[in-house]
Design a protein around this nucleic acid. Sequence first.
DNA 1: CTGAAAGCGCTAACAC
DNA 2: GTGTTAGCGCTTTCAG
Lengths: 363, 363
Amino acid sequence: MADSNPKAKRRAKRSSRPRPGGSVTIHRIAAEAGVSTATVSRALNQPEKVSAEARERVQAAIKRNHYILDGFAVGLASRRSRTIGLLIPTITNSIYASSTQAVQRVAQQNGYSVLVGVSEFSPSREEVLIQKLLERRVDGLVLTGEARSAAAYEKIKRNGVPFVVTWQLTADPALPSVSFDNRKATFAAVEHLIALGHRRIGLICGRTDVNDRALARREAFEACMARHGLPVSADLVFERDFEFVEGRSAMHAILRHRSRPTAVFCANDIQAIGAMYECQEAGVKVPEQMSIVGFDDLPISQYMHPQLTTVRVPADDMGKRATEMLLAAIEGKPGDQRVELTTDLVVRRSTATPKRQNRASAS
Amino acid sequence: MADSNPKAKRRAKRSSRPRPGGSVTIHRIAAEAGVSTATVSRALNQPEKVSAEARERVQAAIKRNHYILDGFAVGLASRRSRTIGLLIPTITNSIYASSTQAVQRVAQQNGYSVLVGVSEFSPSREEVLIQKLLERRVDGLVLTGEARSAAAYEKIKRNGVPFVVTWQLTADPALPSVSFDNRKATFAAVEHLIALGHRRIGLICGRTDVNDRALARREAFEACMARHGLPVSADLVFERDFEFVEGRSAMHAILRHRSRPTAVFCANDIQAIGAMYECQEAGVKVPEQMSIVGFDDLPISQYMHPQLTTVRVPADDMGKRATEMLLAAIEGKPGDQRVELTTDLVVRRSTATPKRQNRASAS
DNA sequence: CTGAAAGCGCTAACAC
DNA sequence: GTGTTAGCGCTTTCAG
């Protein structure tokens, strides 16, 4: 049973059956508008290259048939997705909502969509997400933090996908990043406390094993204390998840410490708010008996009572700049490779001079 | 210049050039594993239908070549995306983070990804997003609220994409939804205030023109007051955006009202927190001089001082159930069409009996 | 259990 | 300015 002419068979099939149950395709539009599929495609992507009449007939046919472009076919044929991937650790801490929103906004303004992946602070889950985003052929990637396996970076690079790191300045200058300096920001916060007269200061931060920003902040805290000749008790340092309740329980422990500190630096506002709540519940006045400084300057922080002293991070600007940098890289344009943004210490009402100087720790 | 054998030409091209700069495809894997592309595809999608040896050789070749599936090709050929779309109004109100997280979790557990679109409360922007999600060939859609143009619904249905409405029980029983009853929940909150002895109650809610949940809550507030024979002054009703500062400024106006109410019902916690802050700044004690009840029970609400009395909404469960219902519909399984979840009024410390009974309003 | 081959719907040379 | 046509990389009958 030799088939006489396979090609003819194929073409016949194609033109004769507009896919019974299938949706309307570019072929249908072309036929109704009396042009070729190429012209329809052009009318869609480069309208200026098509005559006005043809364009109008195509538009009419599209509207009449409720035609919807097939993104898969477009992506497959054009080898571009006009999509960027965004990897964030969590969606419930609103600080990431700010940067995410900025990324979305800039991407959209430039005709790109964004696919967001939430890793929940799990490195392995993040790798799976990177794989998935690569399978979806994202044109670029916005990453959170620099710490990830060499294999993960390898995978990204092998696929020729440009990326930019946010929330952490890359140690390796070859890796593009847009961030503020976590160390500098931490120094500002801790030195504010020290300048106020605090000598015994506790630390509540995120898990340094899965969060390089938490690690950077913890190390900076310790370096700052050391620089000022102040001791850091290991039992006054708490690494916890990003939850109000974690900040609260850490403060609970701090309050019953045999040698209670007069201030606590929280490496994020969520934990700071939990910590502040615990003080209030325990009848410990903030800031009179306990100064608290946070990090992030969440929108809620200035609506707390007392308002939280905290480090304002340029989340929105970071997302914006990172996306711009990424889009430039995608389109092969030159651009900065490493942008350092500034932070501000916002002194509000949760910090003050300690009431009674605790001289115990000064040897 | 008649080409002698077009088909031969095409095939020759295909097999001879593995795309110089291109990435590795299934053809390369097939060749290296000594099987056909069909077998590679099966090894990937229905491993049980492939012999163990073949499967292993394919796996090895995949690993060795760092092969990455092309999602576009898969989607185009299989006519399925294994992706669902999620439309939310905003990303900065953390209440949507909860439901979004649940949607992501359930989707992922079932092998689906989720594409989220943020409409910023703009109906036109939402329609554009629906179009984009349809172009990306989502297998289903999770919508927020029921109110949208007939054209939008038409578009979705014409493409045969199943959907489910959340955050609002659909009036039309033909439209699937998973939600709590906004009216009942509002009644519970307002009746709590009335039971406490409040007679003059203000309302702060979202914009009812672009938010049917806000509308439902406003109408329920008015109905509840009416049922109890209580008047609702138009100048004690505020429709504002979902921002702390909006709640604050509304409360500012309320506090200087010639006939200040003793309680305010806020249709969401964000505005309630802003309102509570304004009271504190103005030296008006909550709850002694002003009772405040919120709606949503955001995680932050119990860390406020005083803790906020509010309506707990089953955001997580709603996202979960909605996604399950949607996946069932996608896979053609039967299932519920309308699920009503319950809410709880969480009485905390921002509400109390009014200090001085305001008898002025009782005619 | 496996392979051959026909597309999925669109884009992009290339020719006219 | 417009049409022809060869794929993009994969899935999916259909045979065997």
